[in-house]
Design a binder for these strands. Structure first.
Length: 458
RNA sequence: GUGGUUGUAGCUCAGCUGGUUAGAGCGCUGGAUUGUGGUUCCAGAGGUCGCCGGUUCGAACCCGGUCUUCCACCCCA
């Protein structure tokens, strides 16, 4: 009956070394979330379908994993509906729960449900898996972790400033220097659309604009034409592609360009404040770049839009993103609560650190000391040593059986154990233990009465 | 959701226009080495060639379906 095991499409197992590396990233992210004053929450892995459906657009609904009702779920379904083969209508009848699609909507739901217990502004972070019935691709899975930090209940632009600092702090500690935080503002995009006379095509316009670095100016203009944007509008938008110089220089040009648009001017002012303030405060290793072509998450972002690009030379899309959304909780009945959030792309950060060999070597040393097992009597003495080491915070183990020495040494080698301890009959007699340095190759003998000496030299 | 791509030993991959017992390297097990790993030498185990069906005297190879992998698009983290 042996069947070949397999895992579901788009899912992954994580082996010890991978978990260690992922934890390394998450611990650093988490620590900075905490020092910036964010508090952790967790929400269920599945929600009522009503909570999720319709929040991510039509495409999103398709990508939500639905959970089949329990029991005889077809019994109550109308026979006519069943034979109509209308999947969308039928789904609503046989599925009332769905897997979490992101962390933002459940967070909005959380805020609304707990509004009376929360002190605003509420700063929360959340690191949990989410699921999407997407077709997998490189760096895209059907199950993946999101690391989000959001602030709700404050519309101060200082939050924008702070979140850029948070990105900077995390990537600096990860030794991932040279990342670029790209910054844009939905109001600027709206202003541009207004000035070129295509306000009603804002989404089409920005989605096309967003592809500039991918398909070039020609590709963008072609897509705009296909979406029915007028030639004059396309012409008027042309100066956007030629924006260059420092952030402040670009903002000066934008200010001019958008002078006739109230909302556009507001957006430029917001960007100016963020750029100016961060200029005064300084960043450790990240670079801040205005990028008017940045247009992610337009369905809900209303102000700032962030995206973090990996250092130059690394072929990787964005490793983080976020933005401000003025009315996220509105859909659940709580008006006028402004929110802003950022997200870290754990899987992609992992790939980048791997490529640049930035993981510390010590991550692989899961066991520091292994005692070779020579037999019952020797093992007992070894176990006493192991206990002492463990009490001192040193990860130590005794090989569980008196297998051949070669086998035990090989095991230590495969597990990357830096020190092997030998207590055989010779050592028993001398009340000592021999420590073999598996990296250098040398050996040293210590007395069992002065274990501290060994611990100090570790 | 659309188009393409991949699947052979634990891993990475060979395998000619269909032809008899399907190979290599690494890893694994045992030995050279009864107290020494990482280097060396010797021997051995391990595969329903993703799965189902079809064509053929004969299929890892050709055809159809299905699952999976990766890539592009859509979208997105």
């Amino acid at each position: 009956m042996a069947q070949k095991p397999s895992i579901a499409k788009g899912t992954r197992d994580f082996s010890p070394s991978e978990v260690n590396k992922r934890n390394y990233i998450m611990d650093i992210v988490k620590n900075h979330f905490k020092t910036f004053g964010f508090q952790p929450i967790e929400t269920p892995s599945f929600e009522n379908s009503d909570t999720l459906m319709g929040k991510y657009g039509e495409e999103g609904d398709r990508l939500i994993f639905k959970i089949l009702n329990s029991g005889d779920y077809l019994r109550k379904v109308d026979g006519e509906l069943l034979s109509s083969k209308d999947s969308n209508k039928l789904t609503a009848k046989i599925s009332e729960k769905a897997l979490r699609y992101d962390l933002t909507v459940p967070f909005a739901r959380y805020v609304v449900m707990h509004q009376n217990e929360i002190s605003f502004p509420f700063k929360r972070y959340q690191i949990q898996p989410v699921w999407r019935a997407d077709r997998p691709q490189k760096g895209r899975f059907r199950e993946f972790f999101q690391c989000d930090a959001d602030v709700v209940g404050s519309n101060s632009l200082l939050q924008e400033v702070e979140l850029v600092q948070l990105y900077d702090a995390v990537f600096t500690e990860l030794k991932l220097t040279g990342v670029t935080v790209k910054l844009n503002n939905r109001k600027v995009l709206a202003g541009i659309a207004e000035v070129i006379g295509e306000s009603d095509k804002l989404i089409d316009f920005t989605v096309a604009l967003d592809k500039l670095d991918k398909i070039g100016i020609e590709g963008v203009t072609k897509e705009m034409r296909e979406k029915g944007i007028s030639e004059t509008a396309i012409e008027k938008a042309a100066p956007l592609y030629a924006l260059n110089g420092t952030n402040l220089e670009q903002l000066a040009v934008l200010k001019e360009l958008l002078a006739s648009s109230e909302i556009g001017t507001k957006g430029v002012e917001e960007l100016h404040f963020i750029v100016k303030t961060l200029g005064d405060l300084g960043l450790q290793s990240a670079k801040l770049d205005i990028d008017v072509t940045l247009a992610r998450g337009l369905n809900y972002y209303t102000g700032a839009i962030f995206e973090v690009a990996a250092p130059e030379g690394v072929r990787m899309g964005s490793i983080g993103g976020g933005g401000r959304y003025d009315d996220l909780t509105g859909i659940f009945g709580l008006k006028d609560v402004s929110g802003i959030g950022i997200s870290f792309g754990l899987d992609r950060i992992y790939l980048v650190l791997e490529e640049l060999e930035l993981f510390p070597e010590t991550i692989e040393n899961s066991l520091q000391v292994l005692c070779v097992n020579f037999g019952d009597k020797e093992a007992l003495v070894s176990l006493k040593l192991v206990s002492q080491l463990r009490k001192n915070g040193v990860s130590a183990d005794l090989y569980p059986s008196s297998a051949k020495m070669q086998k035990q040494m090989k095991y230590a080698n495969n597990r990357n154990v830096p020190y092997v301890v030998l207590i055989g009959d010779k050592e028993l007699e001398a009340n000592s233990f021999v420590v073999r340095d598996m990296v250098q190759g040398g050996q040293k003998e210590y007395s069992l009465d002065s274990i501290e000496q060994f611990i100090e030299e570790l």
